[in-house]
Amino acid sequence: MVNTSVDLCGIRLDNPVIPASGTFGYGYEFAEYYDINILGTFSFKGTTPEARFGNPTPRIAECPGGMLNAVGLQNPGVEKVIAEELPKLRRVFHKPVMANISGFSVEDYVTSAARLDKEDCVGWLEINISCPNVHGGGMSFGTDPGAAAEVTRAVKAVTHKPVIVKLTPNVTDIVSIARACEEAGADGLSLINTLLGMRIDLRTRRPLLANTTGGLSGPAVFPVALRMVWQVSHAVHIPVVGLGGITTARDVLEMMMAGASAVEVGTANLISPTACRDIILDLPRVMKEYGIESLEELK
């Protein structure tokens, strides 16, 4: 029997597979397809203090090996998430869940973090300072080491739960951002969020996305994610959650060999609703194939 369990900031996961925020809703859509308690955990849809509709449509475009999205953090706001979504989530998922938080100011992050800190079902807070699809917030915190550290410090001050800061790849030097978050008290890091991209419709000669630009995800970004996880995990002493284009159990192992303590799977969920379950069921077989008895030996 191989051992697929891993530790993430002091909480044990049965396996390292975590559906990524924004691709898994609040879990219950997927519970129609399979028992989602097979998951390590999952990161629920990015939450802001106030409700947000997000960007106009089209919000989705396709490219070889991936897709672009410019959803723009649509969510019902933290109070509604707690009152309406988390009860539904708890009915279908019985493990600690990762709460993904986004914002447009330090206060926004603090507000949501303080509220979600009180929810027993929340195991970790994932602080998204990397959304490329909103203006005046999101990624602007993730592209400057000082701003990234400020958000991290402010959130840490209002929660006892582990804080994982989600980083953007759209920077010159991701290691400097990662180190700034670590020094500010982050318990872990997750990377990468999507890469900024765009497509143009040949017929209309206009951008395909109403937002003009969007975030690229899917297998196309996997090598970029892997490289950045390698760089960051060799530069910090806190756990790194690796994500970006993971589609198979082999991708999971590769990402963990690059230094990830756990992985998130995003876009694959949109193509096959059972993607994460299929990866988890396949993981022991692929571990055996490569002579891996425990995932923790890869660290």
Binding site: E29, I60, L270
Partner: peptide, 14 residues
Amino acid sequence: ERMGCGFGACMGCS
């Protein structure tokens, strides 16, 4: 509407 997943997960078609 242009869709991502088609089953309510991605919020692409709101």
